[in-house]
Amino acid sequence: MKPVIAILKRDLLLAWRQGGGVGTAIGFFLTVMVLLPLGIGPDLGLLQKIAPGGLWIALLLSVLLSADRIYQIDYDDGSLEQMTLGPVPLELVAGAKAMAHWLSSGLPLAIAAPFLGFLLNLDTKLILPLLGAMVLGSIGLSLLASLGAAVTVGLRKGGLLVSLLVLPLYVPVLIFGISASAAGQAGPDISGSSFIILLAVTLVIVVVTPIASGAALRTFMR
Protein backbone atom coordinates (compact mmCIF):
# COMPACT_ATOMS: atom_id res chain seq x y z
CA MET A 1 0.00 0.00 0.00
CA LYS A 2 2.88 2.29 0.80
CA PRO A 3 4.11 2.80 -2.78
CA VAL A 4 0.57 3.45 -3.91
CA ILE A 5 0.23 6.24 -1.39
CA ALA A 6 3.63 7.57 -2.39
CA ILE A 7 2.64 7.73 -6.07
CA LEU A 8 -0.70 9.22 -5.18
CA LYS A 9 0.95 11.90 -3.05
CA ARG A 10 3.53 12.66 -5.69
CA ASP A 11 1.01 12.98 -8.51
CA LEU A 12 -1.36 15.10 -6.46
CA LEU A 13 1.52 17.32 -5.43
CA LEU A 14 2.64 17.63 -9.05
CA ALA A 15 -0.88 18.46 -10.18
CA TRP A 16 -1.13 21.06 -7.45
CA ARG A 17 2.29 22.66 -7.94
CA GLN A 18 2.16 22.73 -11.69
CA GLY A 19 -1.25 24.24 -11.48
CA GLY A 20 -3.43 24.84 -14.45
CA GLY A 21 -4.72 21.26 -14.54
CA VAL A 22 -8.13 21.63 -12.92
CA GLY A 23 -8.34 25.27 -13.88
CA THR A 24 -7.84 24.51 -17.55
CA ALA A 25 -10.27 21.61 -17.41
CA ILE A 26 -12.98 23.76 -15.86
CA GLY A 27 -12.21 26.45 -18.39
CA PHE A 28 -12.72 23.89 -21.13
CA PHE A 29 -15.95 22.78 -19.49
CA LEU A 30 -17.20 26.38 -19.43
CA THR A 31 -16.30 26.80 -23.09
CA VAL A 32 -18.51 23.85 -23.99
CA MET A 33 -21.25 25.39 -21.86
CA VAL A 34 -21.01 28.55 -23.95
CA LEU A 35 -20.82 26.79 -27.31
CA LEU A 36 -23.86 24.61 -26.65
CA PRO A 37 -26.46 27.42 -26.44
CA LEU A 38 -24.69 29.24 -29.25
CA GLY A 39 -25.12 26.19 -31.43
CA ILE A 40 -28.64 25.32 -30.37
CA GLY A 41 -30.17 28.69 -29.72
CA PRO A 42 -31.11 30.46 -26.51
CA ASP A 43 -34.51 28.74 -26.10
CA LEU A 44 -34.65 28.19 -22.31
CA GLY A 45 -37.11 25.30 -22.50
CA LEU A 46 -34.97 23.41 -24.97
CA LEU A 47 -31.82 24.14 -22.98
CA GLN A 48 -33.44 22.85 -19.82
CA LYS A 49 -34.30 19.64 -21.62
CA ILE A 50 -30.80 19.01 -22.88
CA ALA A 51 -28.99 20.38 -19.81
CA PRO A 52 -28.22 17.04 -18.08
CA GLY A 53 -27.01 15.46 -21.30
CA GLY A 54 -24.98 18.54 -22.19
CA LEU A 55 -23.37 18.61 -18.76
CA TRP A 56 -22.51 14.91 -18.95
CA ILE A 57 -20.97 15.22 -22.36
CA ALA A 58 -18.97 18.29 -21.33
CA LEU A 59 -17.85 16.37 -18.24
CA LEU A 60 -16.64 13.34 -20.11
CA LEU A 61 -14.83 15.43 -22.68
CA SER A 62 -13.04 17.50 -20.04
CA VAL A 63 -12.06 14.43 -18.02
CA LEU A 64 -10.79 12.75 -21.17
CA LEU A 65 -8.79 15.72 -22.39
CA SER A 66 -7.18 16.35 -19.02
CA ALA A 67 -5.87 12.78 -18.96
CA ASP A 68 -3.05 13.00 -21.48
CA ARG A 69 -0.62 14.34 -18.90
CA ILE A 70 -1.09 11.32 -16.58
CA TYR A 71 1.85 9.50 -18.14
CA GLN A 72 3.28 12.02 -20.59
CA ILE A 73 5.35 14.00 -18.10
CA ASP A 74 6.69 10.83 -16.49
CA TYR A 75 7.50 9.47 -19.92
CA ASP A 76 9.35 12.62 -20.92
CA ASP A 77 11.54 12.84 -17.81
CA GLY A 78 12.19 9.11 -17.65
CA SER A 79 10.49 8.42 -14.32
CA LEU A 80 8.05 6.09 -16.06
CA GLU A 81 10.94 3.88 -17.05
CA GLN A 82 12.08 3.90 -13.43
CA MET A 83 8.66 2.76 -12.39
CA THR A 84 8.60 -0.11 -14.86
CA LEU A 85 11.96 -1.23 -13.50
CA GLY A 86 10.91 -0.81 -9.88
CA PRO A 87 9.46 -3.45 -7.56
CA VAL A 88 5.91 -2.08 -7.50
CA PRO A 89 3.51 -3.98 -9.79
CA LEU A 90 2.58 -1.78 -12.72
CA GLU A 91 -1.10 -2.50 -12.14
CA LEU A 92 -0.79 -0.73 -8.78
CA VAL A 93 1.15 2.14 -10.35
CA ALA A 94 -1.56 2.54 -12.98
CA GLY A 95 -4.32 2.36 -10.39
CA ALA A 96 -2.62 4.92 -8.17
CA LYS A 97 -2.01 7.32 -11.05
CA ALA A 98 -5.61 7.00 -12.23
CA MET A 99 -6.81 7.68 -8.71
CA ALA A 100 -4.60 10.75 -8.52
CA HIS A 101 -6.10 11.94 -11.79
CA TRP A 102 -9.58 11.39 -10.43
CA LEU A 103 -8.84 13.29 -7.25
CA SER A 104 -7.15 16.17 -9.06
CA SER A 105 -9.38 16.48 -12.15
CA GLY A 106 -12.37 14.13 -12.29
CA LEU A 107 -13.75 14.79 -8.84
CA PRO A 108 -13.45 18.61 -8.92
CA LEU A 109 -15.07 18.64 -12.36
CA ALA A 110 -17.86 16.33 -11.24
CA ILE A 111 -18.56 18.55 -8.24
CA ALA A 112 -18.44 21.76 -10.23
CA ALA A 113 -20.49 20.55 -13.20
CA PRO A 114 -23.99 20.36 -11.68
CA PHE A 115 -23.62 23.83 -10.23
CA LEU A 116 -22.51 25.22 -13.57
CA GLY A 117 -25.74 23.75 -14.92
CA PHE A 118 -27.48 27.06 -14.27
CA LEU A 119 -25.88 28.19 -17.52
CA LEU A 120 -28.12 25.71 -19.32
CA ASN A 121 -31.16 26.49 -17.20
CA LEU A 122 -30.83 23.16 -15.39
CA ASP A 123 -33.82 22.22 -13.26
CA THR A 124 -32.56 22.92 -9.71
CA LYS A 125 -34.02 19.74 -8.26
CA LEU A 126 -31.76 17.78 -10.58
CA ILE A 127 -28.58 19.26 -9.09
CA LEU A 128 -28.21 16.75 -6.27
CA PRO A 129 -28.96 13.56 -8.22
CA LEU A 130 -26.68 14.81 -10.96
CA LEU A 131 -23.96 15.48 -8.40
CA GLY A 132 -24.20 11.95 -7.01
CA ALA A 133 -24.19 10.29 -10.41
CA MET A 134 -21.33 12.46 -11.68
CA VAL A 135 -19.12 11.87 -8.66
CA LEU A 136 -19.58 8.12 -9.03
CA GLY A 137 -19.40 8.14 -12.81
CA SER A 138 -16.28 10.28 -12.95
CA ILE A 139 -14.32 7.45 -11.29
CA GLY A 140 -14.95 5.31 -14.36
CA LEU A 141 -14.28 8.25 -16.66
CA SER A 142 -10.91 8.94 -15.05
CA LEU A 143 -9.89 5.28 -15.10
CA LEU A 144 -10.82 4.78 -18.75
CA ALA A 145 -9.08 8.02 -19.70
CA SER A 146 -5.97 6.85 -17.88
CA LEU A 147 -6.12 3.60 -19.82
CA GLY A 148 -6.28 5.61 -23.02
CA ALA A 149 -3.26 7.59 -21.82
CA ALA A 150 -1.35 4.41 -20.91
CA VAL A 151 -2.01 2.87 -24.29
CA THR A 152 -0.77 5.92 -26.20
CA VAL A 153 2.20 6.98 -24.05
CA GLY A 154 4.97 8.39 -26.15
CA LEU A 155 3.01 8.64 -29.37
CA ARG A 156 3.21 11.92 -31.16
CA LYS A 157 -0.35 11.95 -32.42
CA GLY A 158 -1.89 10.73 -29.19
CA GLY A 159 -4.71 13.20 -28.59
CA LEU A 160 -7.22 12.35 -31.26
CA LEU A 161 -6.42 8.66 -31.01
CA VAL A 162 -7.18 8.61 -27.29
CA SER A 163 -10.59 10.13 -27.97
CA LEU A 164 -11.36 7.53 -30.61
CA LEU A 165 -10.29 4.72 -28.32
CA VAL A 166 -11.88 5.90 -25.10
CA LEU A 167 -15.11 7.66 -26.04
CA PRO A 168 -16.89 4.46 -27.21
CA LEU A 169 -16.03 2.92 -23.85
CA TYR A 170 -17.70 5.88 -22.14
CA VAL A 171 -21.09 4.86 -23.52
CA PRO A 172 -22.27 2.77 -20.53
CA VAL A 173 -21.14 5.36 -17.98
CA LEU A 174 -22.90 8.09 -19.93
CA ILE A 175 -26.16 6.15 -20.31
CA PHE A 176 -26.44 4.99 -16.73
CA GLY A 177 -25.09 8.27 -15.44
CA ILE A 178 -27.85 10.18 -17.22
CA SER A 179 -30.42 7.63 -16.23
CA ALA A 180 -29.29 7.73 -12.59
CA SER A 181 -29.57 11.51 -12.58
CA ALA A 182 -33.28 10.91 -13.21
CA ALA A 183 -33.06 13.23 -16.16
CA GLY A 184 -34.70 13.22 -19.52
CA GLN A 185 -37.29 10.52 -19.12
CA ALA A 186 -40.96 10.73 -18.40
CA GLY A 187 -41.40 7.08 -17.51
CA PRO A 188 -41.30 5.43 -14.09
CA ASP A 189 -38.54 6.45 -11.74
CA ILE A 190 -35.63 4.13 -12.44
CA SER A 191 -32.88 6.36 -11.07
CA GLY A 192 -32.29 4.01 -8.11
CA SER A 193 -31.67 0.92 -10.18
CA SER A 194 -29.65 2.94 -12.70
CA PHE A 195 -27.45 4.15 -9.88
CA ILE A 196 -26.80 0.58 -8.82
CA ILE A 197 -25.97 -0.45 -12.38
CA LEU A 198 -23.69 2.58 -12.68
CA LEU A 199 -21.99 1.33 -9.53
CA ALA A 200 -21.60 -2.14 -11.07
CA VAL A 201 -20.21 -0.69 -14.31
CA THR A 202 -17.77 1.40 -12.26
CA LEU A 203 -16.63 -1.68 -10.36
CA VAL A 204 -15.96 -3.54 -13.60
CA ILE A 205 -13.92 -0.58 -14.81
CA VAL A 206 -12.05 -0.39 -11.49
CA VAL A 207 -11.04 -4.04 -11.88
CA VAL A 208 -10.25 -4.08 -15.60
CA THR A 209 -8.51 -0.79 -16.36
CA PRO A 210 -5.55 -0.98 -13.94
CA ILE A 211 -4.76 -4.48 -15.23
CA ALA A 212 -4.99 -3.34 -18.84
CA SER A 213 -3.00 -0.15 -18.17
CA GLY A 214 -0.37 -2.16 -16.35
CA ALA A 215 -0.05 -4.51 -19.29
CA ALA A 216 0.24 -1.55 -21.64
CA LEU A 217 2.97 0.07 -19.52
CA ARG A 218 4.83 -3.21 -19.37
CA THR A 219 5.52 -2.95 -23.09
CA PHE A 220 8.16 -0.38 -22.13
CA MET A 221 10.09 -2.99 -20.20
CA ARG A 222 12.20 -4.62 -22.85
Binding site: F176, S179, V201
Partner: peptide, 10 residues
Protein backbone atom coordinates in the same frame (compact mmCIF):
# COMPACT_ATOMS: atom_id res chain seq x y z
CA UNK B 1 -21.77 -6.75 -23.77
CA UNK B 2 -21.85 -3.84 -21.32
CA UNK B 3 -22.32 -1.37 -24.15
CA UNK B 4 -25.01 -3.58 -25.68
CA UNK B 5 -26.81 -3.80 -22.35
CA UNK B 6 -26.60 -0.06 -21.72
CA UNK B 7 -27.79 0.82 -25.22
CA UNK B 8 -30.75 -1.55 -24.86
CA UNK B 9 -31.57 0.08 -21.55
CA UNK B 10 -31.28 3.55 -23.04
Amino acid sequence: PIIKFSVDWW
